[in-house]
Amino acid sequence: MKIIVCLKQVPDTASVKLDPVTHTLKREGVAAVINPFDLFALEAALQLRERVGGQILALTMGPPQAAEMLREAIGYGVDEGLLLSDRAFAGADTWATTAALAAGVRHLGGADLVICGKQAVDGDTAQVGPGLAQRLGLPQVAFVKAIREASAEHLVVERQMDDGYDLVDLPLPALITVVREIGEPRPPSLKGKMRAKKYEAPLAGAAALGLAEDQVGLKGSFTQVVEVFAPGAAGQREMLPGPAEAAGRAVIDRLVADKVILLGS
């Protein structure tokens, strides 16, 4: 089975800084780690390779320093990596990110299975996995907590739900995003780490992927970050006097007036 795992290098949450001009997260020069949720994707891929054999490719989009993360992935036992890196990719929202990643998957010749973590800890959107599946025209199951069966043709997976799980028979090729329950990420392996020391990940920019500048990065994004700020700690406080029922009604009236809620007719 050919598996592509999408990884994102994220700032170590202890050292996050914002770019004062673009209001996006500053990634260069900040301690970076593999997105913790992507480690579960990596673990899922390693488990699958143990069960059915095959190859694991790690795909990421990021600044040149993301090559270090791919080296780390090699240490975990990944066979090959691909770094999508280009100044034009900077500032991408999830739409532009999936454009680049989809091109990356095609650049790698496609896969039987693409695995993503359920979301990244910096953006927290959980959109890239499903968006990538859409762009690749692949069936997808998000929030996979276990892979019950795996063969060259299909997977049977458990999709985590609020009140239990769905059992989904998923024909391949396909994309899944995985959650923590898939399995605790294993430590790296010695052979992998020794290989990683000398590993240089291949690199592809927008031109190599056949992407125009307006498809990727800030220019290819529908969302623009206008401002990033920490919400003020203290709001205005107003005490509504009177019995509870009257006070409750006053709260509702105020929320309707401020268009926070709509009352049904």
Partner: peptide, 20 residues
């Protein structure tokens, strides 16, 4: 199993027999 996944059981075994 974790130690095996980390290749530690191959530590002193020669490379031609799958070790390090």
């Amino acid at each position: 199993k974790s130690l095996a996944q980390a290749d530690l059981f191959g530590l002193i075994i020669p490379e031609q027999y799958g070790g390090l």
